[in-house]
Design a protein around this nucleic acid. Structure first.
Lengths: 173, 173
DNA sequence: AATGTCATGTAACTAGTTACATGATTTA
DNA sequence: TAAATCATGTAACTAGTTACATGACATT
């Protein structure tokens, strides 16, 4: 029963500052933290889930607002997620989630832990890029033009992450 | 009852070449068409769905293999999807899906239709980038460092698509 | 007084995951 | 002959979507 990607997005948000359900929804709606659903049908059940798992607790209920904050277990769950190794599957499946992880590191990890994450990410992407390059070299000419261009977009987007990693590392020496 | 993203990935794959369910699974597993699940629990039910909607039909059953191909309705559904306008929501939610669309255009659309798509995409991303830039200008300094860097990654990844659009257009004059 | 936003929820549905199951065929 | 891969499926579960519902409070 491991938390979902949305769960971690909520945990990270609450870690930055305790929020009501409505507060979380507004943050997901307005900030670029988006592509996470802000609909009540996803947020409120998720909060219940997290509460049942004892990762968050209600703190105070002033007028209408119920404010949630992380429990100790919630904080350590979040931290473990931030510290978990970067796998090639992570890279293949969703770079978005890796960037989300990074975004939440500021408050919880040390500079050297953050820089280690970036180096792991860099290495993993380099590996994957080699794989993609090989495929491109051998199959590129057999692919229909739009297919090939789409594939090349993929390569370029990984190169973008790579370049971003390298420039981001400078902030965490 | 509109087809899902996975449905379109299957339709596009079958349009390129009729396949068995297993064939589709292998393509999703091995090609970079990935992040679409290739598990039997997603593919076989999806094929049933598409068959019920009369977008695909079984053609022949040689030994074990049941081969599916697009019906006329399937082809036109796919084509309509390819031709549908590029919205800012598409861009925000998933560039991946837009690139998937592009990848399938080769066989079904004319050069001018493809180039129109690229121009629409370019314009939409430009709009969105302006929005992101404004946000960055006004809020960038208030954001925690990892949050800001993550945001900047977002900007860079849209710039990558933009550059890709521009270079891809050259193939469809 | 009416509209909009704050604030929280539920109910019905859909798609996708994980895990299991089966049998045939191919390869080591 | 054992193991791997071909080939297709199902069953139980989970998360998320859409749509609806409610009431308080603030604004015009």
């Amino acid at each position: 029963m491991k938390p979902t990607s949305l769960d971690f997005a909520i945990l990270g948000t609450l870690q930055q500052e305790p929020q009501s359900g409505y507060g979380v929804r507004k943050i997901f709606e307005t900030t670029a933290l988006g592509n996470y659903s802000s609909s009540p049908g996803s947020i409120y059940p998720a909060l219940k889930r997290l509460e049942k798992l004892q990762l968050i607790t209600k703190t105070k209920t002033i007028n209408d607002k119920t404010t949630f904050e992380l429990t100790e277990e919630g904080t350590s769950t979040l931290k473990n997620w931030l510290l978990s190794p970067v796998t090639i599957q992570d890279v293949k499946r969703s770079s978005e989630e890796l960037i989300l992880r990074f975004a939440f590191m500021g408050n919880l990890l040390s500079s050297s832990q953050i820089s280690k994450f970036l180096e792991e990410l860099e290495a993993t992407i380099l590996d994957y890029l080699k794989e993609l390059d090989n495929y491109h070299q051998s199959e590129g000419n057999n692919m229909p033009i739009t297919g090939r261009l789409a594939f090349e977009y993929g390569i370029q987007s990984y190169q973008t992450i790579l370049a971003w990693c390298i420039s981001a590392k400078k902030f965490f020496t």
